[in-house]
């Protein structure tokens, strides 16, 4: 590298230039060269200050929220499009959740894992839903209207029912379980909100992206 190239590199990237100078070279640098490097560092400092425009408030949260919303929407679209009615995997067998953690936290985890473990779906008729509830020994005051999945799951290590329904095109998840979490009525994480209520012969856990969906679903199944 000749002197002109060195000078250009110094101006193009003063930090990389400084890193490339050995201690010996530095001791041999003229006062004028050192001054030029200092000026360059100062100019870059001014440039960084000018480039440092304000970032919109709440952008980080919006990015994370939008991503979570997109995952939920794409998951739902996938269910809606799939034609097969065969349920390939049982949630209870594959979810990597043990009895650790609270029931509400495990329920939220189950919802986050739904997209990974379900490969298909279809509309579940009222008759099919009632048959599956009967088989599990669960009762609902009223059946939900638009069910796209109803299966056994191992929430909390117990035989529970995992139902996904739709309200206004948005998924709402219902767990029916014999387990309880005393003192918990409402819960949430960064993306989902949920409510727990006592049902006819088991506990009802409803989870969705918005509380109004949870409330409307609770009302639909007579859990209010």
């Amino acid at each position: 590298m000749n002197d002109i190239d060195k000078k250009r590199q110094q101006i193009a990237s003063v930090n990389e230039h400084i890193e490339s100078i050995s201690e010996q070279d530095f001791e041999q640098m003229s006062e004028q060269s050192i001054e030029a490097v200092k000026e360059q560092i100062e100019f870059d400092r001014q440039l960084k200050r000018a480039l440092n425009v304000p970032v919109p408030e709440g952008l980080e949260e919006r990015i994370i929220l939008n991503n979570a919303t997109q995952q939920r929407s794409s998951r739902f679209s996938y269910f809606a499009i799939a034609a097969s009615i065969t349920l390939v995997l049982s949630l209870g067998l594959f979810l990597p959740l043990g009895p650790s953690g609270t029931l509400s936290a495990q329920a939220l985890e189950h919802v986050h894992h739904e997209e990974k473990y379900l490969t298909l779906d279809n509309q579940v008729t009222t008759e099919q839903l009632q048959a599956r509830l009967d088989k599990m020994g669960f009762k609902l005051a009223q059946l939900p209207k638009e069910v796209i999945l109803a299966t056994r799951c191992g929430l909390g290590g117990e035989d529970s029912m995992h139902i996904i329904a739709e309200i206004d095109g948005k998924p709402v998840t219902l767990f029916i379980t014999k387990l309880t979490e005393p003192g918990t009525v409402e819960f949430n994480d960064n993306f989902l909100v949920g409510k727990m209520r006592a049902g006819l012969n088991a506990n009802l856990i409803v989870i969705a992206e918005e509380m109004q969906l949870v409330d409307r679903f609770m009302e639909q199944i007579g859990g209010v």
Binding site: R8, I11, A12, S13, F43
Partner: peptide, 11 residues
């Protein structure tokens, strides 16, 4: 090319 453009940008 990047070095040249960085140099010219500052100039």
């Amino acid at each position: 090319t990047v070095s040249t453009r960085l140099f010219r940008a500052r100039a």
